[in-house]
Design a protein around this nucleic acid. Structure first.
Length: 440
RNA sequence: GCCGCCGUAGCUCAGUGGCUGGAGCGGCCGGCUGUUAACCGGCAGGUCACAGGUUCGAAUCCUGUCGGCGGCGCCA
């Protein structure tokens, strides 16, 4: 009754209302007419159901004429008898008595033939597609699961500023924003602020927009994306990687629970995901990763070089679950990632990690323990050409009761794309922003 | 930052120096009582991205501009 007697398509397809007079409303997804009949398929947020009109069965013949001329995406309220009908998609259809047009749609520009460019130009309309609807539902589950995961473990949601005066990631490009007569930048991580907050809340997380002005033209990059980060006091590298594994496992479990229908619509093999979460996700070191590349792929990587996309994807051919890779060479890591003096490696390595997704999806998480030595951090900032003076407030977090702490960031769109089995993160966000696109 | 590709009807494309630039889909008109992004008949629809150049002649060749896409690097 909350829906004023309207029943969603998904509910109607369950069939228990068969034989009853029902009402539903939505948008015309498909329509074709054949003499004194009109076949329409009505779409709502839950799914689609066929509504069939016979001229002679209509309580108002004008509505039959309206139905005949109504174009795709016209909004309608439909009333009729729900019947079992094997010829209808979904097995049930409404045999229509009343067909009220709420709004006659103009010619909908998106038809059978679609190019990626056209669909991106018309993303505001393409959002109505079953594909985008399915992905957006999965995205909603993913972000919901992240909140649930951390709150269940005693983490507080903490909201960082989006306008930030300094950079953090050592070289990553920032979007500059005019701020009255000053300059500021859009956030590329909450990290510096999160590290201030753990001294009160201890365990915190967020799901927030992140901006990177990198001209990266790949299926894995966006200039505006959502990052789910966590930061925890008293936590060292190993525990941090375990939290990351549990989080990813939890997200997959939730999507399997809530979005089986959407995964199937997208052609995602759910068995792969089901099997994956039964297994432990392995942790290896960077040095071990090089060994695997050499011995099992015949790929020689010089120790000290960062793993590139090609090496990561070759490495992941040997795994069918996400893998945590720790202890990358300090030289290629950001200033705040501390050297692990006890590590067994050919050179200085950092207490840091990435999580790589299987099936060619690559890096989904990056994180580390945080350096507690102001002197060390200053040394590496200067090496990167940064002025340590800009980081005084950050160094303050090390001056008053500093403790070991760790954190990481998870790329929401990358996780959504991977779990959904789609080939581009640009479809994992409603309105993607790339180096060459800020519309619509 | 580096390398490559594309731009022709609302959409997807064909046309690569020579007659008035084509098809399918979509739209409009008509037909059809079981359609499955139906079928049959008819109609409308073009700044060949833009600017300049070469040529008797340019959608087609050249130069530039604009817009978009892909790969690498970098990252989540």
């Amino acid at each position: 009754m909350l829906e004023l007697g309207f029943t969603k398509a998904e509910r109607l397809l369950k069939g228990d209302k068969a034989g009853q007079r029902v009402k539903t409303r939505g948008w015309i997804y498909r329509t074709r007419h054949k003499g004194k009949m009109v076949f329409t398929v009505i779409r709502d947020s839950s799914g689609i159901i066929q509504a069939t009109l016979f001229r002679g069965d209509m309580e108002d013949e004008n509505e039959f004429e309206d139905a005949k001329k109504a174009l795709v995406e016209s909004s309608v309220e439909v009333e009729g008898i729900l019947v079992k009908e094997p010829r209808a998609p979904g097995g049930y259809e409404i045999q229509v008595r009343r067909f009220r047009i709420v709004n006659f749609a103009d010619v909908f520009p998106i038809t059978k033939d679609q190019s990626e460019e056209f669909l991106r130009d018309n993303r505001h309309l393409w959002l109505r597609s079953r594909r985008m609807t399915a992905i957006m539902k999965i995205r909603s589950t993913v972000t919901g699961a992240i909140h649930e995961f951390f709150r269940n473990r005693g983490y507080y949601e903490f909201t960082p500023p989006i306008l930030q005066p300094t950079q953090c990631e050592g070289g990553a490009t920032l979007f500059e924003v005019k701020y009255f007569d000053m300059k500021t930048y859009l956030s590329q991580t909450w990290q510096l602020y999160a590290e201030a907050a753990i001294f009160s809340l201890e365990k915190i997380y967020d799901v927030a927009p992140t901006f990177r002005a990198e001209k990266s033209r790949t299926p894995r990059h966006l200039c505006e994306f959502w990052m789910a980060e966590m930061e925890a006091a008293w936590m060292e590298l190993e525990e941090c990687t375990e939290v990351a594994k549990e989080e990813v496992g939890f997200i997959i479990k939730k999507v399997l629970e809530k979005n089986r229908k959407e995964l199937e619509l997208l052609g995602r093999d759910t068995k792969v995901l089901e099997e994956m979460i039964k297994k432990d996700f392995p942790t290896i070191t960077y040095t071990e990763a090089l060994k695997i590349l050499k011995e099992r792929s015949g790929m020689e990587v010089e120790w000290g070089k960062d793993l590139r996309t090609i090496e990561e994807s070759e490495l992941m051919k040997h795994f069918d679950t996400p893998v945590v890779v720790t202890h990358y060479p300090k030289e290629v890591m950001a200033f705040y990632k501390p050297i692990d003096k006890e590590a067994d490696a050919p050179g200085p390595v950092a207490k840091c990690f990435d999580m790589l997704a299987p099936e060619g999806y690559g890096e989904i998480i990056g994180g580390s323990e945080r350096d507690t030595s102001i002197e060390e951090m200053k040394k590496y900032l200067e090496k990167d050409g940064e002025d340590p003076k800009n980081y005084e407030f950050y160094f303050d977090t090390r001056r008053y009761g500093s403790v070991p702490h760790s954190g990481y960031g998870l790329g929401v769109e990358r996780v959504v794309a991977w779990i959904s089995g789609i080939d581009n993160v640009k479809d994992a966000i409603p309105f993607p922003r790339t180096p060459s696109r800020i519309r619509p």
